[in-house]
Design a protein around this nucleic acid. Sequence first.
DNA 1: TGGTTTCGCTACGAGTCGTAGCGTAATGGC
DNA 2: GCCATTACGCTACGACTCGTAGCGAAACCA
Lengths: 209, 209
Amino acid sequence: MQSPTPAPRATGRPRSAAADAAILAATREALVELGWSKLTLGDVATRAAVAKTTIYRRWPGKNELVVDAVAELFDELRLPDRGTLAADIEGVVLQFAAILARPEAKSGLMAVVAESTRDDALRERIRASIVDRQKRLVLEGRARAQTRGELPPESDPGETARTVDLIFDVVAGAVVHRTLVSAEPADEEWVRGFTRVLLLGLAGASQTA
Amino acid sequence: MQSPTPAPRATGRPRSAAADAAILAATREALVELGWSKLTLGDVATRAAVAKTTIYRRWPGKNELVVDAVAELFDELRLPDRGTLAADIEGVVLQFAAILARPEAKSGLMAVVAESTRDDALRERIRASIVDRQKRLVLEGRARAQTRGELPPESDPGETARTVDLIFDVVAGAVVHRTLVSAEPADEEWVRGFTRVLLLGLAGASQTA
DNA sequence: TGGTTTCGCTACGAGTCGTAGCGTAATGGC
DNA sequence: GCCATTACGCTACGACTCGTAGCGAAACCA
């Protein structure tokens, strides 16, 4: 998914998979050292030891390249089994915060989100390769909590989808804002407080709905 | 605060205040039409009918200019008095969402936040002219709710500060994520659901703290 | 009127962009 | 083994933006 494989031809010289990996790694390295605005594709090409034209053959431009480079970071996310819903959420939020604290994720992710406000294709690329890809964590967590009896089973599937979207916006948004705008670490203490508010709110909302 | 007034000299030709306003307005206009990445200071100068050098005399660069141009948008925020805490919060969140839905706010704000991950001075500028400036809304809302008896009075001031920060991260973060990443409107229905979760969470957390 | 600062304008070197053209390398089909 | 096909590295290119310098004119104060 991270490689822009365009229906590989049966004939001709095949594209180097090593080049893909080298380019994406070089992109992250350049994000760390230079940040978004000073990152140039010429520099990435030099770091990756490939020609600049090779990058342009595979990605439309800087935006799409950075999306793919950052997306790989979030594939590390796992839903831990800590026994309770609250502990599970705390665990995954802490992982999310740890990834977002890395400089290559910070400067890259926000920049492409900013660009995506004027580029529908780019926003779709972000949603597909980052956001929707991780929504599985929310679904898994809910299912596990329902098995434990911590959450009532959902009847209305539409309502469930809305709730999942709300949770995702709140969790991702709060961690991002805390990390990037407030510039405070989303450490264990903060995550505990945040998780308590979120869970109490969700429990109360599902009762009085 | 939005004008970079550098201790006005007693002598010499004074800086044109009209030029400041024209430059900031031209910046917002360019943000709408071009977006962040294609915005150039030369273009802004042409739109504002000033020389490019005039802009460089007043702002260090594109980043700081856009921060000031966007900051003015958020000064419109008011805390409405709708009678209950929930209604007040819904009102201000809706205003916040309306501002964030405007293209000049979207593309500008996220871009400077991205840049601020590698520029401490820029992040401080954002905090001072946008974030902290609006934190007054949270404080006013809490005070009003305590007068109404909807919230218990706070004893520990440190705990209060932490709670205000948490609220701000959750509210701003969730609305931003909903608007920019999920690309769904933060309309009345969504805001109602979000506010309910937030208030129930805060009420429960303050009881069991 | 003289001193001071800003303004608009022009011009400049430096750097980046994205593309084109070329010869070479690596595949599969015959 | 040979050929068609595609990817690759390299070089060069015009177009554009950047941020700064220098100039004469304009606007203010004493």
